[in-house]
Nucleic acid binder design. Structure first.
Lengths: 287, 287
DNA sequence: GTCGGTGATACCTGCCCGGTATGACAGGGC
DNA sequence: GCCCTGTCATACCGGGCAGGTATCACCGAC
């Protein structure tokens, strides 16, 4: 009566994202008519109009926008439940509920911190096995929400900590990474305004949620590619100070005086309370 | 394949909570055999043993404990999606997604603050309609999670803010509320140790999640009942300072010197971003 | 031993989910 | 004006699966 079926949420989010019954049905691997009917039934069940069917395509109503957001959260929670339960499969009730942890971390970030953390935690008595899951540029939050990860290293202001518990680990400044030969590479300091629009050296762009922000710079897929393009003098990028660890000799790092500091946090879903996770967090805050 | 159906979650949580297939089936309004089969299918689908069936009852495995927690969260999210969508029913996409807010607040707490907040917000241009939902002693968190409320007034350390966004509104000390005639009522200050075990005046107990903590004091259902029992000299209670607003003449309030301060927050689900909610929060922080 | 209470199995039925075929309707091109 | 295209809705049908009833297998209590 008052709880939605996962199937209904899957169907609705597909239609709401595609704004097109045919494409949504294809994405769901089914035919269009039953999908139309399912959405109608959902609207009748909720007593609310979710979609505005105009002659050309579909538009979300206010209620539809709400359901899209809330439904995504609910679907994430449901898949998280499945993933975390599967992962807990081996462990029987003896100790804590879970004895294996998946830690999501940006491939290019916090390498030293991560090494120290893993080493220190592994030395703890009764430490769980930690699987390090390299994540894309900013998908740690999604990974925690949908259960692909149990805990993550996040970096404000790039990541948002909303909805998670977290502990602060490290604060660092930011640097501009430039080709070593570039005139600005000789400077001892720069401002964000100065590096934001260097003629002939557009800042690199990387995807957020699958789409690239607009701009002239090249589209980056991974950190090696970025390093190469900077070395070739084709682009530049702004990173936390710890990125110096992976710079090449063809790179130059110049501190940005007015960039906001980057704070590394360890973050986890607010409702989780496994012993293994608590141990990892304790270790992290003691570093 | 990797996302659980709400039906499966409903069934499993029922069994996991009852630890008894028959009672769980009755609670679900169905017969026991299909429930048994559904759980078996769920276990097969996840490839994980969830329940340890002994002769004489059922026990949760580690994976089962994980699924109980994660599943409750997922079910809450699903019912929240339904509730909030229904509530957004009237409003069409024009302005913000929602133009009606449900505010959960303990019946006995923060009365002045609440009045000021409602008055100030109602004076705002374009203010949404705010429905005040009186909540039980500590169920604000659950109400936010399952969508009965959109925003809540919470009081640390009684409430936990884990998983929500929040803003601090007010900090206050705590007082012991005693019968006016009691010897200790004449004191100008007390400690938690002193009031914790007054002979003949056991502290009142109220339910957390439906069950009462153990102890000698009377079980309280609402605030009026508590006031009455204190006035009759049968019990005492500890409350934030603002509780003075509803004291009777038969009551005495004595400050507790070493009790942790109570901080009132306005809190909301981290992922929500309606215009109406943002306005209410802005108003609250400006009080 | 028998009996009571547990969860599992066997079998059947009806619903509902999904597929195919088709309709209604609005634009766009010529 | 016409038809053609693309869209979502409707009509109808078949099969899978959820759920009910009856029963079994097992164990503990007395």
């Amino acid at each position: 009566m008052d709880t939605l079926e996962t199937r209904e949420l899957r169907y609705f989010t597909a239609v709401a994202e595609e704004l097109h019954f045919g494409r949504a049905a294809e994405r769901l691997g089914m035919a269009q008519p039953p999908l139309s009917r399912a959405i109608q039934q959902l609207e009748r069940r909720l007593g609310v109009r979710l979609l505005e069917r105009n002659r050309r395509g579909v538009r979300l109503t206010g209620a539809g926008q709400v359901l899209l957001h809330e439904g995504r959260a609910a679907l994430d929670a449901a898949t998280a439940a499945a993933r975390r339960t599967r992962r807990a499969g081996g462990a029987d009730g003896a100790g804590g509920p879970r004895d294996r942890l998946v830690l999501a971390v940006k491939a290019a970030a916090s390498h030293e911190l991560l090494q120290k953390l893993l080493a220190a935690y592994a030395a703890e008595p009764g430490a769980a096995e930690v699987e390090v899951l390299p994540s894309g540029m900013c998908e740690e939050e999604e990974m925690l929400r949908d259960g692909r990860a149990d805990v993550a290293l996040m970096h404000t202001p790039y990541n948002s900590l909303a909805g998670f518990d977290s502990e602060e680990l490290l604060t660092e400044g930011q640097i501009a990474i430039l080709p070593a030969g570039h005139p600005l590479a000789a400077r001892t300091a720069l401002t964000t305004a100065e590096v934001g629009d260097i003629p002939g050296l557009p800042p690199a762009r990387w995807p957020r949620k699958g789409t690239y922000p607009p701009g002239p710079g090249p589209e980056i897929h991974d950190q090696t590619q970025l390093a190469q393009l900077i070395a070739l003098g084709r682009t530049m990028a702004v990173f936390p100070d710890s990125a110096r660890a992976w710079l090449w000799s063809e790179h130059a790092a110049v501190p940005l005086t007015d960039a906001p500091p980057v704070v590394t946090h360890i973050a986890w879903p607010a409702h989780s309370h496994s012993l293994a996770l608590a141990g990892l967090i304790r270790t992290a805050t003691r570093l």
